[in-house]
Design a protein around this nucleic acid. Structure first.
Lengths: 145, 145
DNA sequence: TTGACACTTGAACCCGAGTTCAAGTCAAGT
DNA sequence: ACTTGACTTGAACTCGGGTTCAAGTGTCAA
C-alpha cells in the first residue's frame, strides 16, 4: 500500500476546506477519491492540487458547474471558452465593485450627516442611476427617503 | 389624493427590481409603503430613491441586514461605522478578484493545453497557495490532477 | 473488550435573497 | 354583468454551496 496517500481530513485541511466540502465536490463530479482503505477515501497529492485549483477558480467567481466543465471537458478550446466567458464577467464585476467602492468611500467624507440617504454624494449617484434607466427624473430635495 | 404617488409596479420598474423584491424589502424593514389606496401600496418619489439607494449598497456587496442598519440607525457615526467596515471588505474582495483575474487571464495564454490543470501558470499559483498554508510542499509533476 | 477517534452513508437542514403560487380584491372598460 | 389587469396576502418553493445529523464501521491503544 503506497503511504503517500492522504486521508480526507488531510486533503481538506491542507486545501483549507471542510471535509464535508470535499465529499460534496465528489457528489458534484469535480473530484474522485483515488482509493479506499477499509471504506475510507484516500487521495493522491495531485488530488490535493486539484482541490486547490477548484478553490482558485471559485475565488475567481466561477460556479461549481463551470469548474466541473473546465475540469471535465476534453478539448483545450472548450475549457478556454468557459474561462474566457468568465473572465469577461469578472472584469465587469471588478469594474462595478470599483465604482461602488468610490461611491462608498466618498460617502464616508460626506458631512450632510444623518441619515445616510441625505448624503449628497449618494444623492448624486442615485440621480445618475435613475437617469440611466431613462425614467423621467425625480426632483432632488433633502427629504428623508 | 396626491397623484404623485407611485404604484409598486412603477417604483419597481423604475428602480430596476421586481415587485416581489419590493415587498420582500418591506418585510425585511428596509422600506415602508407611504400610503394605501384600496389596499394597494403607494410610494412617494423619495421612496423610489430609497429603493435605488438599497440597490447601490447591494451592488457594493452589503447584505440586506447591513443596509437595514444603515437606513435605520439614528446616528451618523453608526452608519459610517457599518459603511467603513464594508469598505474594508470591499477593498479586500476587489484585490482578490484582481488577482484571480490575472491568473485566469494568464491561463488563457498558457499552451500546455489540456487539461486545464496542466497549465503551468495555474500550477505555479497552486504551489503558491499550498505553500501559503505552511503545509509541506507537494512536488510538481505534469500529471493529471 | 472497551473506549476513543476518524471516518462512512443518505437525508435533512441552513443561509440569503428573493420568486412563485393559490386564492382573493378592486377599478376600469365594454 | 363580465372580463381584464394590476394588485393583495401568507406560505411554500428555488438556488448555490455547502453543513449537520443519526446510525454505523474500522483501527488502534490501554
Amino acid at each position: 500500500m503506497p503511504e503517500d496517500l492522504l486521508t480526507i481530513g488531510e486533503v481538506a485541511t491542507r486545501a483549507g476546506v471542510a471535509t464535508s466540502a470535499v465529499r460534496y465536490y465528489e457528489r458534484r463530479g469535480l473530484l474522485r477519491a483515488d482509493a479506499r482503505q477499509s471504506g475510507q477515501r484516500r487521495y493522491r497529492p495531485e488530488t490535493l492540487r486539484r482541490l486547490v485549483f477548484i478553490g482558485m477558480l471559485q475565488a475567481a467567481g466561477l460556479a461549481l458547474d463551470d469548474i466541473e466543465g473546465i475540469l471535465n471537458t476534453s478539448t483545450v478550446t472548450e475549457w478556454k471558452a468557459i474561462a474566457a466567458r468568465r473572465l469577461t464577467d469578472l472584469d465587469e464585476k471588478i469594474a462595478q465593485l470599483q465604482h461602488a467602492r468610490e461611491v462608498l468611500a466618498a460617502a464616508l467624507f460626506c458631512r450632510y450627516d444623518h441619515p445616510a440617504t441625505q448624503c449628497r454624494i449618494m444623492g448624486a449617484e442615485i440621480d445618475r442611476r435613475l437617469a440611466e434607466t431613462e425614467s423621467p427624473p425625480v426632483a432632488w430635495r433633502p427629504t428623508t427617503l
